[in-house]
Design a protein around this nucleic acid. Sequence first.
DNA 1: GCACACAAAATTGTATACAATTTAAAATTG
DNA 2: CAATTTTAAATTGTATACAATTTTGTGTGC
Lengths: 236, 236
Amino acid sequence: MSHVTASPSTDGKAQTATTETITEALSLAIHAHRIAPGAKLGEEDLAEIYGVSRTVVRASLQALSHAQLVDIRRNRGAFVAQPTINEAHEVFEARELLEPRTARSAATQASQAEVSILRRHIADEHAAIQAGEQGQALHLSGKFHIEIARIARQKTIADFIETLIARSSLIIALYWRRESALCEKHAHHALVEAIEAGRGQDAQELMHSHLVDLHSALDLRERPRTTQSLREALAP
Amino acid sequence: MSHVTASPSTDGKAQTATTETITEALSLAIHAHRIAPGAKLGEEDLAEIYGVSRTVVRASLQALSHAQLVDIRRNRGAFVAQPTINEAHEVFEARELLEPRTARSAATQASQAEVSILRRHIADEHAAIQAGEQGQALHLSGKFHIEIARIARQKTIADFIETLIARSSLIIALYWRRESALCEKHAHHALVEAIEAGRGQDAQELMHSHLVDLHSALDLRERPRTTQSLREALAP
DNA sequence: GCACACAAAATTGTATACAATTTAAAATTG
DNA sequence: CAATTTTAAATTGTATACAATTTTGTGTGC
């Protein structure tokens, strides 16, 4: 009976909770590693937490399932997804294919206001790290990448990147090795510089090497050191 | 009161209709242009057609909504999506980014059995055209592209391509100009040859020019000559 | 006759009730 | 006491009932 503290009623959202609200709250909680991969998301629990019926909770879980953040097994329930090593490779390969091109496109289109938003993201991320909020920092790091995709004005591809980043969050939760420090600050800073100056080719290459760095900082050899619910860890 | 004849009960599927069944049936019907963009998908109608309650129909519609085949408007209902001209460009730009690379990858990995499957697809598509089944031919053409993505063994990217092709089907329904004949036979044939011979670079270039051909065969200047419900056609 | 206001019907959103299945616990047996 | 079967509890899947909203139809005033 793992109590899921996704977005407790203390947030005051219980009143206006709708499908989108819950989907967003759960997505955030997963992004920030407040809910671990493999954790069970019971419908009744969530319904009570958000003050709605199971009907609306199920809609949220289905949405998250489509984004591959949640794994729904028939008659068994919904669990936070646990990407395999193979899927982890695929996700980062896809990012290496999509994001560099997108960064180049963003460099040629970014307005000054948009560059400011990117800088704000970096500052927030840095502040979160200083405050020791590792999960929040990771979440902000993802939003930085999403913002670049949005600036590129290719909504279709930006949507793809958004789902890839969501899954990356799970992958990092499972496979990140603590040895290698998550020092994205320099990489992100250099990216913003290139984008602001309109140097598309530089932005493309910077993004690519940044992603390769991230990819190689994962430990994709052994099985995930998972925190999954005790029972499930021992059973099969 | 447009009667949606997605997959009438004469198919005998009414008994075992499940969420996935209905999603697949509707997807097929949309792919084959048996349901036009803008058509309303009433929950009660579908529930009766498939012999289930609205609950399961709603799950299907939500799934299709996530795939962007269906547009759900709150308190208004579900409609077959109508991609805008801008979205049409984006979809084909995304395909031009993803599929050539995937075709090259497929060329280096395709087994003989997989090549046979591709040839079968081409034959089926040709037969459908001969029989005058334009919709079915279009559907098979899409499956050809999906099969190549599958052969490349990049499930993540293959999933993206699958949704892009699904949306392409809607785009073609809306923006295809009848003047330009849909003669994909040669392009697909050349692609299979390159893949079978393991000529990755050729496959990549063939796929790219094939997609550029498709893209340029669309009439993306004027508004879609849509069959949408009359009211919606006149209102803003 | 046309526009507007109002009432009725139809449709979607949400909650609840019940059935089917899985999971946990208890009882039985060797 | 361990292993298996049986029974009970909990959880999910589906259908139905009711509330909220939109759409349609009708009537009234000008």
